Simulated assay, not measured.
Amino acid sequence: MNYRHAFHAGNHADVLKHFILSRVLGLLGRKETPLAYLDSHSGLGLYDLMGDQATRTGEWREGIARLWAAFDVPAPLTSYLDIVRDMNPDGELRFYPGSPEVARRLTRPQDRLLFNEWHPDDGQLLKANMAQDRRTVIHQRDGWLLPKALLPTQEKRAVLLVDPPFEQADDWTRCALALKESIGRMRQSVAMIWYPIKDQRQLKRFYQELQKSGAPKLLRAELSVHPVDNPIGLNGSGMAIANPPWGLEEELRQVLPWLAKQLCQSQSGWRLDWLIEERPA
C-alpha cells in the first residue's frame, strides 16, 4: 500500500467528507446513548499543511484555505471549521484534522473510537497522535476486514466511515461489499462511503452496486469542482450515507450549493438525492 493521504490533506474532497462527518456526529450526539465510531482507512489523524508532502501538491489551497478566509459561512459548517480554527490558534492555517481527529473532538466521553490504518508508518503516527485519548483503539490491519471484525458493536449505535485510497480497481466493489456487510451485521448503523468522481461509467456501476446493499435508506451527496466528465484528475467526490440522521439532508441542501460556489476550480456542481428511499412501514 503506497497511498499517503498527507499529499491530499485539506483538499476539496476532505472538506466535503469531514463536513459531512462532523454533522453526522453532531446530529447523533443529541441523544445521550453511547455510540461507536469506526474508521476503516484512518490515515494519520493530524496533518501539517506546511509539511513536505502537503506542500508538494498544495491541494489544500483550493480546499480548506478557501473556507478559512470565507465570509457568511452557513451555520452547519461551524462545528467543522471550529475544529480547524482550534488547531490553529494563532490565526495562520497550518494544521488540519483527519477524520480520526474530527471524530475525537466531536464525540462524547461515553463514546468509543475504533481507528484502523494499515500503512505501517502512518499507523504508528496515528497511534502517537491519538495516544492521549483513552477512548481510542488503534488497529493496523486490512481496512476491508473492519465491518466483519468489529460489527455489531457493544453500543447500540455505530458510525462507520469507509474511505479507501481507490488505488486498486476492485476498491469500488469492495466499498459496496463493505456497505452490504455493515448493514447485514448491524442494520441500524450509519455507514458512510467516500468515493472519487472521475469515470462516469464506473460511477454508474458503483451506484447500482450500492443500491443492492440492502440498506434501509441511502443518501447520495456529491460535490464537483470541475466538469464531471473531465478525463483527467479528481473532478469531485461523493458520500453515500446509509441511515443518515434526521436533519442531515436539510443541512446538506443548505450547504452544498455554497460549497460548490466557494470551491469551484473550473466548473462546479452538486447533487443530493436518495439512492435508496426508505419504504413506508
Rank of each mutant, 00 (worst) to 15 (best):
R108I: 01
W118M: 11
I64P: 00
N235T: 12
L150S: 06
G51E: 05
W68S: 03
D52P: 05
A260F: 01
R253T: 09
R94E: 10
P147L: 05
L219A: 07
L218M: 07
K148D: 12
A103M: 06
R94D: 05
A149W: 08
N235C: 13
G238V: 03
L161M: 12
W194K: 07
W68I: 06
P164S: 10
V24P: 01
L16N: 02
T78H: 10
L151I: 12
E155C: 07
G29M: 04
V15D: 00
V190S: 06
P165K: 09
M130G: 02
E167N: 14
N116C: 15
E32L: 13
L21S: 02
C264N: 11
L177G: 11
P120K: 09
R56A: 09
M87H: 07
Y195Q: 06
P74W: 06
Q254W: 08
H139N: 13
C264Q: 12
R108M: 03
S22E: 00
W68E: 00
A65Y: 02
K148P: 02
L248F: 04
A128V: 09
V24M: 03
E92V: 15
D171C: 11
M130A: 15
P196V: 05
S237I: 04
V84I: 15
K204A: 15
P89G: 09
N129R: 10
V190C: 14
N116E: 14
N2C: 09
T136G: 13
E249I: 01
A36I: 02
H226R: 14
F166I: 08
R94W: 08
Q208K: 14
D14N: 02
A158W: 04
Q132V: 12
L177I: 14
Q262S: 05
E167A: 14
L203H: 12
G214T: 13
Q124E: 15
P245M: 03
Y96D: 03
R134F: 09
R141Y: 03
E155V: 00
A13M: 05
V255T: 06
S40I: 04
L252W: 02
H5Y: 08
P280C: 12
A69R: 14
L114P: 06
M1L: 13
K198W: 08
E62N: 14
W68V: 03
F166Y: 15
L161N: 08
T107V: 12
Q262T: 14
Q211N: 11
S189D: 03
L146P: 06
G143W: 08
R66P: 00
I193A: 11
E155R: 03
R66Y: 01
P89E: 10
A240M: 07
Q262K: 13
E167S: 12
P196R: 06
L35H: 05
D39P: 06
R157L: 09
L126Y: 00
M1V: 10
L219T: 02
A281G: 10
D48T: 03
W258R: 06
W144I: 10
Q140S: 15
D111A: 02
R279C: 08
E59K: 01
Q140H: 11
R112Y: 11
H139S: 15
R4Q: 13
